[in-house]
Amino acid sequence: MSKMYLGLPMWANTEWRGSLYPPHAGHEGWLPDYARVFSAVEGNTTFYSGAPRQETVAAWARQAPPDFRFCFKLPSALTHERRLSGIESAFDAFLDALAPVQDRLGPLMVQLPRDFGSDELPQLETLLSRWPAGVPCGVEVRHREFFHKGAAEVALNRLLITHGANRIMLDVRPLFSTPANGSPGLAQAQSEKPRRPLHVISTGNQPLVRFIGHLDEDINSHYFTPWIERLGLWIKQGKTPFLFVHTADNRRAPQFARTLYDRVASSHALSPLGAFPGERQACLF
């Protein structure tokens, strides 16, 4: 059956009690409940806090089903502080920490600094050349020169294609479509996310889209519509796309992700999402 992985930026969010999670659910049940609905998750915490303890990862392995995919970010200590230079042993240690879920790793994400340009591509090439077989890779660039369709972008794309790495597509068009207009959540998201053009390109077999939504659902729907055809095309080509859905404050990210997925599923015969455990429990009463 056709497959597309769908996920959110995290699974631990108290604001999802009463919708995705039962109203009084303890955090120990969040991952199992999350994985009943969503098939993947971004692992953003590793970007800030580094490799998790192996016993923590072992607990995740017990809670997530075999077809679930964890897409952890490389720690910022490797990408931003050391800028991929001389990180071999630290990278290996990071992979070792993830060993309990090695069979459930989606693309590990290499998010590069905004000033990481073409002159530093040799460091990226060194990393990709020793990237372990069987572990997908996603690379997110943010330097302006990689979005001008010039020599720097050509060199980047060739490098990624050569190593089968996926260029992460960060779609911030809905987020920046209006001023913040006094919305703290929107203002914060606009300050944190880079305002870069969207270049739609699949350089590997797991095209990865991070869709950063607005608070206005009509705006989100407008910008998502072209993705329906594109995601379907990749599926028909035998690729396995990953779609990660954010909203400005992420409060309604689960509902928003469900709405977008339903549009893709109805067009491309994908399996329906499971019911939200929190909503299912509410129906019982």
Rank of each mutant, 00 (worst) to 15 (best):
Q102P: 06
H148N: 10
S85T: 03
F72T: 00
P174T: 02
A99Y: 01
L128F: 08
F91H: 12
L159W: 03
R173W: 04
N166A: 13
D171A: 12
F147K: 13
F91Q: 12
P52S: 08
S183K: 07
C137I: 02
L159H: 08
D92K: 11
L128Y: 08
Q102R: 14
G150T: 01
P132A: 10
L108P: 13
F91N: 00
R173G: 14
V57S: 15
N157P: 00
E145D: 08
L121A: 12
M109E: 03
P107I: 01
G138K: 01
P75D: 03
L105H: 10
K193Q: 10
R167N: 12
A77W: 01
A155P: 10
L121F: 07
N166L: 05
G86Q: 05
R53F: 00
L124S: 13
R144T: 05
A165D: 04
K149P: 05
L124R: 11
S85Q: 07
D171M: 07
S89I: 01
L108S: 11
F68W: 02
P113F: 04
E55V: 00
P75L: 05
H148M: 09
G185S: 09
P184R: 08
Q102K: 12
A77R: 09
W131K: 12
K149C: 12
W60N: 00
V101Y: 06
S129P: 10
A189E: 02
T79F: 10
L124F: 08
A187S: 13
C71F: 02
L78H: 07
D119V: 05
G106P: 11
H148V: 06
S89K: 13
L84G: 15
P52W: 00
E145W: 01
R167L: 14
L170C: 14
E120V: 01
K149T: 06
P174A: 09
T178R: 15
D171I: 02
L175G: 14
S85L: 07
Q188W: 02
N181P: 06
V139P: 13
H163E: 06
L98S: 09
P194K: 06
F68I: 02
T126G: 15
R82W: 03
G106H: 05
I168S: 15
P52C: 09
P100F: 02
Q102W: 00
R82M: 11
